[in-house]
């Protein structure tokens, strides 16, 4: 396979990763990392560097559309970034202290648990009408969005901000330590813990993952994990796919998005458990 074939084929796969990532609020690393390591035989360290690029591309590509369409809860996203960026920063320096196998096994279990939680509430579309959450009220994190699939404006309240912040800190930590899985924790943190509507959760997760990834991108760049010949097709393909995915989200029902998310989450958690238990 020549470099041209590599660039073209990887760009096409990246388009698919971008569509999926923008819909479920993940960075597409779940597709990019296994494809690079298994199909192309690329070293895992370079694959994780490409995954960081893919996360930033998905985030910026999708968020540009989601923010314009008011699907993103901008205030909640920017507020929670306090926890994700702090987590990412501390994660970059914890990496040497904690054994990677333990981390993979631990997060595999965490993600398996959140996939069960998300699956159990697949029929729920209730939003909160009132919130007693002091932080959410003080920063006015509540919001509304127009749901194209239901054809109406949905107003919702946010609660459980403290638990949300803790989960977001862990999400930032995971992103910096393992290079994958940051969106996988962000979506349940908003959907299940903070009661944001599912589509708002994936759109806001998309909005946030770019900033989380950017907080550890510097380290990956200096360590020489961002290979331009891998990053170029990934960035271009993912951007195209994410822009397309962002146009579709509004028309899909929350239930479909949840089931899609659960499917992806199960794959990631199995992947992590495998790396942790049977490396």
């Amino acid at each position: 396979m020549t470099p041209l074939d590599f660039v073209v084929s990887l760009a096409l796969i990246s388009v698919a990763a971008g569509v999926l990532g923008s819909l479920v609020g993940l960075g597409g690393g779940v597709v990019i990392v296994p494809v690079l390591t298994i199909f192309y035989g690329v070293n895992i360290r370079l694959a994780i560097g490409a995954s960081i690029v893919s996360v930033i591309a998905t985030s910026s590509g999708a968020a540009a559309a989601y923010v314009r369409e008011r699907m993103t809860n901008l205030r909640a996203g920017m507020f929670l970034e306090v926890a994700t960026t702090t987590g990412a920063l501390s994660g970059a320096y914890l990496a040497t202290l904690l054994p990677e196998r333990f981390l993979f096994a631990f997060f595999g279990v965490v993600l398996a648990y959140s996939s069960v939680i998300t699956y159990r509430k697949r029929h729920e579309d209730q939003v909160l009408a009132v919130s007693n959450d002091r932080i959410a009220n003080y920063f006015n994190l509540h919001g509304s969005y127009y749901d194209e699939a239901e054809g109406r404006e949905i107003t919702y309240k946010v609660s459980g901000t403290k638990l949300g912040l803790v989960l977001m800190y862990i999400a930032g930590l995971v992103s910096a330590l393992l290079g994958i899985g940051s969106g996988a924790l962000k979506v349940p943190a908003m959907d299940a813990a903070m009661h944001l509507p599912m589509k708002v959760s994936t759109a806001t997760s998309n909005f946030m993952i770019g900033v989380t990834a950017a907080a550890s991108a510097g380290v990956y760049f200096i360590r020489g994990q961002i290979d331009p010949i891998i990053a170029a097709p990934v960035a271009a393909g993912v951007l195209l796919g994410a822009t397309f995915g962002a146009r579709v989200l509004g028309r899909i029902t929350s239930r479909t998005i949840r089931l899609l998310f659960v499917g992806v989450l199960v794959v990631i958690s199995l992947e992590m458990l495998q790396k942790g238990l049977f490396p």
């Binding site: 209730q126 009408a129 009132v130 919130s131 107003t155 309240k157 609660s159 459980g160 638990l163």
Partner: peptide
Amino acid sequence: MTRQSPGPDPQKNVT
């Protein structure tokens, strides 16, 4: 991460 109902009328959709 259980669902709580902090408000008096959590069933209501619209504020």
